[in-house]
Design a protein around this nucleic acid. Structure first.
Lengths: 132, 132
DNA sequence: CAGTATCCGAGAGGATACTG
DNA sequence: CAGTATCCTCTCGGATACTG
């Protein structure tokens, strides 16, 4: 049995995102934007409250964290749970959809981390050539 | 047999990228930037020349395509092959490293495309709640 | 064809202050 | 704690023109 049909179908799906007016493109940009990726990976560590998450993601400002979370919530990847109380207590967690989609993003980050030695070498080579 | 050790190691790697000064973060940003992702997916269709690739990725300007390709080339994900001739002929293709890393990115795009119905529904729900 | 150079506007994103 | 609001800067990125 060949997986040709499966592969072709996957390729078609992937290719679709290249189209400017494809509806998935904004979502992709939310996830892969500067903070989207990092917030997602931070949340995959487990549910977190606002400032807790802020500490996880090194360097994110309140504004950007808030904004990013709203986008991800709107896309249905993240769930916001408010416990009415004083002091306020809000928890963010991945939805099942979020887990499914962001597993792929985490896989990317892992592969990337594992490849860093090779990447750093490539960068050195490139920089040396440019200098010459 | 448990995969616990493997899993924990993977989680550590992923977590690393959350640190501001982690060396993999810039690379991740190149790949996941607005055009990085799309150029990569475009190139995964097969090697391409500059303007050919520009046509594949709907909406990218010459400037951004050029810039993105340089970043990816520096990171060792993309190879630039110059055939000295007139008219100039330059081909871009994924390196083996690039294929390995970007397979993960393509998997993300596929999962995302497949999840679009669910995402669109979530967005509608969110927008309705905001209005109320 | 395969780019680089320059200009310019819009929006990303940081710092700070404030609110419930 | 969990944000929103405001201001301000700086980069991203598009349009255009030019080069080998």
């Amino acid at each position: 049995m060949s997986t040709t049909d499966e592969d072709r179908q996957a390729a078609e799906l992937t290719f679709n995102v290249l189209a400017k007016r494809c509806s998935s493109r904004p979502v992709l940009e939310h996830m892969t934007g500067k903070w989207g990726t990092l917030v997602i990976i931070g949340l995959r560590e487990g549910p977190a409250r606002f400032n807790e998450l802020r500490r996880r993601v090194d360097g994110v400002s309140e504004k950007m964290l808030s904004q990013t979370l709203h986008s991800l919530e709107r896309d249905g990847l993240v769930e916001r749970i408010v416990h009415s109380a004083i002091p306020p207590r809000v928890e963010y967690r991945m939805t099942p959809l979020g887990v499914r989609v962001t597993d792929k993003l985490a896989a990317l980050a892992e592969e990337l981390e594992a490849s860093m030695p090779e990447i750093i070498e490539a960068q050195s080579r490139y920089d040396a050539e440019q200098r010459a």
